[in-house]
Write a protein that binds this DNA or RNA. Structure first.
Lengths: 206, 206
DNA sequence: CCCTGTGAACCAATTCACAGCT
DNA sequence: AGCTGTGAATTGGTTCACAGGG
């Protein structure tokens, strides 16, 4: 299970496996098969078996997989069995919505600090967290040892703020600004831009 | 340029090309090269040339690509040169943030209707659009001929609302609920779930 | 010289098909 | 019979390297 040997495309599917497994678990299902998972996810059964087999032998011939056990394994592989503390930078509409979202905690994450540069917002409370002045960004993130940040600042500010986050020790950034960030290669970046998804679909429309 | 012959993975990169090209255009740059684009996007130059060559010969040897011309071509390929009208279903925090987002119009989209089932929200105005009762969903979407919907309802409601959208003639859904939708294959679905991205990155952390 | 477009070569990912266990 | 795990085969994607035009 050495991180270097696992194709990234396999890793990218694991969170989706975990998502449907947790759903099944909450519906009190005990076991499943590669076939059932494949159907729910729109993949092939062979692919799911191959993906999982990269990390160990989690199934039983004839029976399939124990859902509980597979969830534990995937959480451990993805390192989401201990809630990661995150920083949220940007308390605009989107930042607000994310800060108030209740779905992080049971999937391995929680928001620990929120930053903004707007005096109107600094000091306000969102979901139990006081919005902090962005000038405290480096200090606070270092003190708390936070490794993950979500970036919801206006596009023109994104690159500069991202660089400050890296300075502060952030190792993974979920970037909501529709600009590609240019950062040292050891920093992991994921982008969320709804318009990219919309344009992907319009290619096939009409 | 027949839609069926183009690998989906190529299509998925075109919106990102368009995004950086539009950015360069706004910075008054006239021409670019596959190399420059590759650097900005973190891809290889050969890949960008191959991708674009699927749709025509847009570049000039020795000179590279005219940014303006390439933008026009990509917009036409992705069919984002005429603003698509969209429905937004779910006017909670996230729906609110999306409705107030100003970045749709210059990338080929606009929100035309917003639905919710909460009497508190129905009738309220968000960014110039009056929130409509979700019971009018089918009627309104059919009347307006809307083909694209964004779904920001609570997870338990997502599947049922999605089915109603399909009934109403929706052909593409951008789903923000963290559940995989099960819909007829002719409906295009894209999912946005921040936690999937976060879990993808935590695999590589520590 | 610089850069595109592209067949050929290479590499990666998925599917097949079956041995082996329940 | 049912299902996993896995080499082998196949399919798909990316990179190489170069001809040819500016």
């Amino acid at each position: 299970m050495d991180e270097q040997n696992i194709p990234d495309i396999v890793v990218s599917r694991l969170p989706r496996y975990l998502q449907v497994l947790q759903r099944m678990y909450h519906e009190n299902q005990q076991t499943t098969s590669s076939q059932e998972l494949a159907r729910k996810l729109g993949l092939s059964a062979a692919q799911i078996r191959k993906d999982l087999s990269q990390f160990g032998e989690f199934g039983k011939q004839g029976t399939g997989y124990s859902i509980r056990f597979l969830i534990d394994q995937l959480q451990s592989i993805l390192k989401v069995n201990h809630g990661w503390e995150m920083a949220l930078v940007g308390a605009g509409d989107l930042g607000h919505a994310i800060a108030r979202y209740q779905g992080f905690s049971n999937r391995g994450f929680c928001i620990r600090v929120i930053f903004d540069n707007d005096p109107e917002k600094i000091g306000k409370d969102i979901n139990g967290i006081t919005v902090d002045d962005i000038s405290h960004l480096e200090e606070r993130i270092k003190d708390l040892g936070i490794k993950i940040a979500m970036l919801t600042v206006p596009s023109p500010a994104a690159q500069a703020v991202a660089e400050r986050l890296v300075q502060a020790g952030i190792q993974a950034i979920l970037n909501y600004a529709p600009v590609p960030l240019s950062l040292p290669p050891q920093v992991y970046i994921q982008n969320i831009d709804p318009i990219i998804h919309l344009q992907h679909m319009t290619f096939y429309l009409e």
